[in-house]
């Protein structure tokens, strides 16, 4: 057993476990978007789950830290919050904020984080960087909303986990990056329509299954 201190609270846990999931289990909220417990190594691309660990030079993404005995962690420092706010503002600048018509309304991690970090959903700090198309058909039975997508990669990793190989991929680069399908897999055991795990795992409902 290892005992760690998070914001002054001591927590008993197994050594080697993921710091972010330990914190979340103990009701210590750390903003996060791309984290999936079973994914090793973690995707670690959202740059939101920063914490300060005593002995380390700067804030580190907590999803990449393994718990060790005697670790002292701070989740609420000025530097951490500033990094998180900036990251969230970047996400929101590339996100079409239309909560009223969005199926993710009220269960959206962006809304939750904005409330927690006190960042307005429609910030004027950064120029909006929306993509041209609001809706794309995604083979064979999905709809994809590029301007909702936060590019967390959860759909890709889930697809790979379910099917062994991912049918989804990141296409393009930089601000033009989207999630895209290309071709199929030979001898598919489960069809996309039956599986639809990518749509289920999407935190912002950017992938929707088209039924009927």
């Amino acid at each position: 057993m290892a005992i760690i201190t998070v914001d002054g609270l001591s927590i008993e846990t197994e050594p080697g476990r993921n710091l972010l999931s330990v914190c979340l289990e103990n009701d210590i909220y750390i903003p996060h978007l791309c984290f999936m417990e079973w994914l090793d190594p973690p995707h670690a691309s959202c740059r939101l789950c920063y914490v300060e660990v005593e002995g380390k030079a700067g804030p580190v993404p907590s999803c990449t830290v393994s718990v060790a005995s005697g670790m002292a962690v701070k989740t609420d420092t000025v530097e951490v919050r500033s990094l998180q706010r900036t990251a969230l503002k970047f996400f929101l600048s590339a996100h079409k904020v239309e909560c009223k018509v969005c199926p993710a309304n009220r269960q959206c991690p962006l809304q939750e984080m904005a409330k927690f970090l006190k960042v307005p959903l429609k910030s004027k700090d950064l120029n909006p960087r929306l993509k041209e198309k609001d809706l794309e058909a995604l083979q064979p039975c999905f709809e994809y909303y590029p301007n909702r997508c936060v590019l967390c990669g959860k759909c890709l990793h889930t697809c790979e986990r379910v099917k062994g190989q991912s049918l989804l991929t990141f296409a393009g680069r930089g601000i033009d990056m989207t999630v895209s399908f290309y071709g199929g897999l030979p001898n598919e055991e489960i069809s996309c329509e039956e599986c639809a795990e990518c749509a289920a795992v999407c935190p912002v409902k950017a992938i929707l299954l088209v039924t009927g």
């Binding site: 991912s166 049918l167 990141f170 296409a171 895209s180 399908f181 290309y182 071709g183």
Partner: peptide, 11 residues
Amino acid sequence: PSSEVYGVATF
């Protein structure tokens, strides 16, 4: 998977 080839090529 061809999706992976496509991902690399579009990058």
